[in-house]
Design a protein around this nucleic acid. Structure first.
Lengths: 211, 211
DNA sequence: TTTTCGGCGAACCGATCTGTCTATTTTTCT
DNA sequence: AGAAAAATAGACAGATCGGTTCGCCGAAAA
């Protein structure tokens, strides 16, 4: 309804936001792709290395030659998945021309495309933090890095908008993003992105009106 | 800062929002409490039944007499944890006197108390959905029920406020709640509840001003 | 051609997993 | 007190876990 207001290029036939659907043909690439798919769909702990090598079509020894342990593979998957996702996400956003406000709101249109993918399994980092709640797993560090990337981008846009407290506003938008992801994942309903977008509009209005 | 504006009774010395800290002394109760603690802190798949019975101080046979399988125990834990949490949560909110708007905003103050608990491990249902992304596990049904309880309560307050679209507004508040939970869990920072509260205020203002 | 080397399949290791069973002790009800 | 029910410790089974090892293969480099 208010989506055509923001011009976001339509998703290409192959939206490569996940490494799980664009594996390079090397053994290592196939392993990471297979592991990403299984980890994100069945959980990290619930996925055994045998299932991973079976899906990757490699030998177990090959896997342990590239990744000394399963935890190393988990870390590699999160690193690669995060890089691929951010490349896709910020790439889409970089095609949006207009003021920073439009770019921030476009975030939620891109999110909706993400949610609408039939293979959408939530945010790997949110899921990883949920599963490795306790313990200092490398997954948490990867999640921290990912969130920092997002916050940095958001803050840059907000500074460009010349608003009073870019840090707090970036936190607000981040809460909206997280909430939209979780709600869409739970209900299998991509339209939560638009719900979050309206909240973001409301927030940006309220902090911009005092010019 | 804007917290004293809403009067929420301070948390009692023992805030019994989790069954994991208020076990009844029966074998079944101890099992559910121990399982809740371990499931929520280490993950469902990563927690073995041996660890559960060890923490509960029961025999393994006793566990399997009460719960035919580990999945049944998971389902029982989510059911009990959800009921305990909702009793605590809505109990706190019922002590808030004032119009519906104040009651909705108080949600986020209660959430902040929840986040501030040193044993806070995120929302068990969000974590369960993250871990059982694929598959028709009973955990998803429990999560659906939980979210429906929340949405029903929110909608009742919004109808009392006589706003135009209570369903969409309830979805909005739910997104804020989910986002606050995930952000607070990730950053170990309870103040995300206040960030979400400001967004909720902004939203309620925008839909109420057109009287 | 010969060497090299990453990948392959498969067996194997010890540990842990869910779930079962038995035999004994404790609790509870009448 | 006596019967019935419940809980106990612990061994056990079969499967799977993460991880290792070994010998073979095919392609590429020498």
């Amino acid at each position: 309804m208010n989506k055509p207001a923001t011009i976001v290029p339509p998703s290409e036939p192959d939206q490569e936001w996940s490494i799980a659907v664009s594996p390079d043909d090397s053994a290592r690439g196939r392993l990471v792709a297979a592991a990403a798919h299984l980890f994100c769909n069945r959980g990290f702990a619930a996925t055994g290395v045998d299932a991973i090598v079976a899906r990757a079509g490699t030998a177990k020894a090959t896997m342990y030659k590239h990744f000394p342990s399963k935890d190393d593979l988990i870390a590699a998957v999160l690193k690669a998945e995060g890089e691929a996702w951010r490349k896709w996400f910020f790439g889409r956003l970089s095609l949006v021309d207009g003021p920073a406000r439009i770019r921030i709101l476009a975030v939620f249109d891109v999110l909706e495309d993400w949610f609408a993918d039939p293979g959408f399994y939530g945010c790997p980092f949110i899921n990883a933090v949920a599963e490795f709640e306790t313990g200092d797993h490398a997954a948490r560090a990867a999640a921290d890095l990912h969130k920092e990337h997002l916050l940095t981008w958001l803050k840059a846009q907000l500074i460009e908008m010349d608003i009073a407290d870019p840090n707090e506003s970036a936190r607000s938008i981040a809460v909206l993003i997280d909430g939209a992801i979780v709600a869409a994942q739970h209900a299998h309903d991509p339209s939560f992105a638009q719900t979050a977008k309206r909240l973001a509009q409301c927030h940006l209005d309220s902090i911009s009106q005092s010019s």
